[in-house]
Nucleic acid binder design. Structure first.
Lengths: 148, 148
DNA sequence: TAAAATTAAATTGTGTACAATATAAATAAT
DNA sequence: ATTATTTATATTGTACACAATTTAATTTTA
């Protein structure tokens, strides 16, 4: 393999690593008013779409385990955004539901995607192509980690 | 703006967030033998290229501040990979240099980019295009954060 | 040159991530 | 039905990441 290609791949990984932090920073600014972090916002997005999800379901959708989710959901609970209740049918499961305050944040958050897209300053074509590239990359990477 | 576009942008940010973690996981597996993390590997890459860099210089290249670097470099020091010494010319600066052990890891790490590229399973054309897209995105985002 | 401003690291505190392990509930197997 | 296995969370410990503040050294400025 050419040295150029090795360097290129190194650069791409570093760029993805850097891009993730830049995007998190963008969201941090926009989410400051809502007093939530980007991962917490991701949880809210799922709950706004369909309230009442188990920790397991959230973890499956966000690719996060209970070691990350449990303390995060407890923080969201103590901030009054969600409630955590053991499922009646299956006492192993914990069901997360939105409080009124958590539900109400949806309106406040409505402007965020718009602002973010403006900050990213990419054409629709670029966005679509990038999305496709990342999807095929994730398909490969996530299948690797699931089939271990 | 169309709702599709808003959703698309949401998805892209989440994909970048997910891709970063998948790549970190790939590196975690490959770097396990070297007993370093991906951010530590990034520091080593810079030092292997040019030994003796200040914390400030490392932070500038990696977009990390002393709050992240100081404890990380201390861990690398206690693992015997680098040395930390106050600069003689400017006592505010701390200069990081490789130990023999840190220098020796370079050989062991030689196979990593190759293995990683195989795992990413992308064509050279895709890699180049992705690199360009991320570069222009980072140019915009990082200039925003620097010009605040 | 003495005071003010700037700079480079370090420190403190909060919030992810994740490996490894523990715990308790549900399901499968004998 | 009892035991074994699996499953869903929780816990523990390590390592980033970053905002905010502190400390000490260097420059700038009055």
């Amino acid at each position: 393999m050419s040295n150029d290609l090795l360097k290129l791949e190194n650069q791409i990984c570093f760029k993805i690593y850097s891009a993730e932090r830049e995007i998190t920073r963008l969201y941090r600014d926009l989410l400051q008013e809502l007093n939530v972090t980007y991962p917490q916002y991701l949880v809210l997005l799922l709950l706004w779409e369909k309230d009442s999800l188990s920790v397991k379901e959230l973890g499956k959708r966000l690719f996060l385990d209970s070691g990350t989710l449990t303390p995060m959901l407890k923080r969201m609970e103590s901030n009054g955004l969600v409630e955590r209740k053991r499922s009646v049918e299956d006492e192993r499961s914990v069901i997360i539901t939105l409080t009124e305050k958590g539900e109400a944040l949806k309106e406040k958050a409505a402007c965020i995607p718009n602002q973010l897209t403006q900050n990213m300053a990419m054409t629709k074509e670029e966005l679509i192509h990038l999305s496709h590239t990342l999807t095929s990359m994730l398909d490969v990477l996530q299948n690797q980690s699931n089939s271990e």
